[in-house]
Design a protein around this nucleic acid. Structure first.
Lengths: 191, 191
DNA sequence: TGCATGACCACATTAGACATTTGGTCAATT
DNA sequence: AATTGACCAAATGTCTAATGTGGTCATGCA
């Protein structure tokens, strides 16, 4: 029985259920069935333990985003599916949802930091996809950093902000707006 | 000397300097050189006084947005200038800046509400501009509500969020991204 | 003997009794 | 009739004792 692994499992559950602040090292130790001191032989402190959980989460998100890519499909649809999966994960996954709540309601530093890391990771991921797509000629040349930033912000707007004052949007609806605004553009020839 | 007006002036200054919560009715009365009771002959309570200040602010924002429109220019440039003026106002104006700070740092209900009203007002304003532009054939047909929402979110992203991790963008830079992403679109013919 | 442990400690956080401030009222005043 | 500021209840802030928490390390088990 792998002690490090059971500590990770306990920490993931506890952070997911109670957030960063409300998770105590005593509790993690109890759930993991180890002495508290044992945790400190694998992780230097609470923050590093949390960081490891976040890194694991980031890897999981990335693999879920990759899993949805179909090489027989258009770049546009793959990009949409990846972004949608990533932001749905962020919205529905227990740990991410809890961290968003904690960051918003209590302003916990570590929660905010983790959220920022998630956002940076998504931008980095999208940036790679865009760079590859430009090289292959699927989309025209553009700054991948700015474009990834814009895409993420638009998806966040559609998936999170829109619901504040409207009925939630369907996945297909978001795809069609994505197509309409970013891929086709608004202008007529004259303007 | 108009008592109502001097109360409004005092309230505007005080809300702008100290925010909603830290502004006391005693203070407003003192600055306005009236007895506290007098305030309650013009406004039913603190919240309504604040609401009147916000309504005045909204009218001011709208007139500043209108002032920047040039009928000899393209729709796109006018839209950009309006959005830029509105969000720069939101960023730099004493009262709006203070309210954003208060909403973020203290979560004051009234500040959040006021911010939401501002956002709704901007969307309403942009929606009207879009509806007119569609009717005149300047842009192709689209849902004005969703489009206004997307435009606002993108400008907020560029003017506020981008600065969190990057150098601020110039006004012209934002215009060119606006053009690039929304008006022209990303796609090549093939995808 | 080496590794896991939980009692232990310094410090952070909370609870709750008490003091102060504040939104709103209204009898007195002009 | 219009204005005012002393007044009040309720909200908010302050102070301190008590409790909780991250992290350590002497102890003891395998």
């Amino acid at each position: 029985m792998d002690k490090r692994q059971s500590i990770m499992n306990a920490a993931r559950d506890s952070f997911g259920m109670f957030g960063y602040k409300a998770t105590t090292m005593d509790q993690v130790a109890k759930i993991a069935n180890v002495g508290k001191g044992t945790i400190y032989t694998f992780f230097t402190n609470k923050e590093e333990l949390f960081q490891q959980i976040i890194l694991e989460l980031l890897r999981d998100m990335k693999s879920k985003a990759e899993a949805v890519i179909d090489d027989n499909e258009h770049f546009k649809l793959n990009l949409h599916n990846s972004l949608f999966v990533l932001l749905t994960y962020r919205k529905d996954h227990q740990l991410t949802a809890k961290l968003f709540q904690e960051a918003k309601e209590m302003g916990t530093k570590e929660a905010k930091q983790a959220i920022n890391e998630m956002e940076q990771a998504i931008i980095e991921y999208i940036k790679e996809k865009l760079t590859a797509a430009i090289k292959k000629g699927f989309i025209r040349k553009c700054d991948p950093e700015v474009t990834a930033f814009v895409l993420l912000k638009i998806y966040i707007s559609f998936i999170f902000d829109w619901e504040e004052n409207h009925q939630p949007l369907e996945k297909e609806q978001i795809l069609s707006y994505f197509d309409e605004y970013i891929f086709k553009g608004l202008a007529l020839s004259k303007c």
